[in-house]
Amino acid sequence: MSTALVDPDAVSEVEETTAETGIQSFLVTFIIRRFNPEVDEEPRWVDYDVEVYSTDRVLDALHKIKWEVDGSLTFRRSCAHGICGSDAMRINGRNRLACKTLIKDLDISKPIYVEALKGLPLEKDLVVDMEPFFAAYREVKPFLIADSKPEPGKERIQSVVERERFDDTTKCILCAACTSSCPVFWTDGQYFGPAAIVNAHRFIFDSRDDAGDVRMDILNDKEGVWRCRTTFNCTEACPRGIEVTKAIAEVKQAVLRGR
């Protein structure tokens, strides 16, 4: 395990700012699983000591490491507000969004471990190849399919109750945190995974959609909903609070009932 030292000038600036704002700062050790396919045969753990504020997120610490300590650190991020889902990673063994994980909510008396999501091909450092995930997503036809057209100048009318039926599963941001937390997905790359089933659920129960039977036929497969073992890992991992396991159970019931 190698160690990257903190820039003394950066630490001095943090101490001065802390004195001005009154916000407490801490020296926290981050141990990051690094992998550069051009030089590494296997991933390796590298530790960094970082001065952070109690209000910082893990994403802020990663930015500090990349901008001030080691510019080669590679990770994805975009909106930084828990909407795009691009910075999903494993933090202390749990799938989370780095932008939503406050450092003060972690045990900073111990090192914070950060690594890429499991079950997807590792490309570099904290970046995985999302194509297998999106291939499963596309296969369930995650878009409205209607046999009829609305009246000219009119929208397809839906009641509040009809909307509530699938409201929870509209919250998915396709971060892959749920799918990559699933033990079945780790061991079976053909399994559709929780996120794909959640997005199928969103249209199966949409009163305006006419292709629910098509999606249920797709998921009524040996690699579909019946591969779920109801471990609740997916529900615990979802940063949006979607009841993923419940949605999968509802799709199973719909398949059995014929919707």
Score class of each variant (00 low, 15 high):
10 A>H: 08
26 F>Y: 09
21 T>L: 06
18 T>H: 12
39 V>I: 11
35 F>E: 14
16 E>L: 12
54 S>R: 13
76 R>L: 08
21 T>G: 02
79 C>M: 06
17 T>Q: 15
73 L>A: 03
31 I>Q: 14
29 T>W: 04
28 V>L: 05
38 E>K: 10
70 D>N: 06
68 E>N: 15
79 C>H: 03
51 E>T: 14
18 T>D: 06
81 H>I: 05
29 T>I: 06
74 T>P: 03
63 H>V: 02
69 V>T: 15
62 L>M: 06
24 Q>P: 12
42 E>H: 15
64 K>I: 00
50 V>R: 01
41 E>G: 08
6 V>D: 09
34 R>T: 00
14 V>L: 10
31 I>H: 07
44 R>V: 11
73 L>F: 01
3 T>K: 15
24 Q>K: 14
30 F>A: 00
50 V>P: 04
23 I>E: 12
67 W>V: 08
52 V>G: 03
48 Y>R: 02
59 L>H: 10
12 S>P: 08
22 G>P: 03
61 A>K: 05
65 I>P: 02
17 T>G: 15
67 W>C: 10
12 S>C: 12
53 Y>M: 02
1 M>H: 13
1 M>K: 11
33 R>S: 15
23 I>F: 11
13 E>G: 09
8 P>Y: 00
57 R>Q: 04
31 I>A: 08
21 T>N: 06
34 R>D: 05
39 V>G: 08
77 R>F: 04
36 N>H: 08
2 S>H: 14
59 L>T: 08
57 R>W: 00
35 F>M: 07
20 E>N: 13
25 S>C: 06
74 T>L: 08
29 T>D: 05
26 F>G: 01
52 V>S: 05
25 S>A: 05
2 S>P: 12
49 D>S: 04
34 R>S: 01
42 E>N: 13
24 Q>N: 09
47 D>Y: 04
37 P>T: 02
61 A>H: 03
61 A>G: 04
3 T>C: 13
57 R>V: 00
63 H>P: 07
80 A>F: 02
46 V>G: 10
59 L>C: 11
32 I>P: 04
64 K>W: 00
79 C>G: 09
19 A>W: 12
59 L>W: 09
54 S>I: 12
52 V>T: 09
61 A>W: 01
59 L>F: 10
9 D>N: 14
50 V>L: 01
5 L>C: 03
52 V>N: 04
45 W>F: 07
62 L>W: 07
17 T>L: 13
12 S>V: 12
74 T>D: 03
74 T>W: 06
58 V>Q: 00
68 E>L: 12
25 S>D: 03
65 I>L: 02
72 S>V: 05
13 E>F: 13
51 E>G: 12
2 S>F: 15
7 D>F: 06
71 G>F: 06
31 I>V: 11
46 V>N: 12
20 E>W: 14
30 F>P: 00
56 D>N: 07
57 R>N: 03
30 F>D: 00
66 K>D: 10
48 Y>D: 02
37 P>M: 04
10 A>T: 10
7 D>N: 13
56 D>T: 09
64 K>P: 01
33 R>Q: 15
71 G>K: 07
42 E>Q: 13
38 E>Y: 10
33 R>K: 13
65 I>G: 01
71 G>T: 04
44 R>P: 10
66 K>C: 09
15 E>M: 14
34 R>E: 06
36 N>F: 07
2 S>L: 15
47 D>M: 11
43 P>W: 07
26 F>P: 01
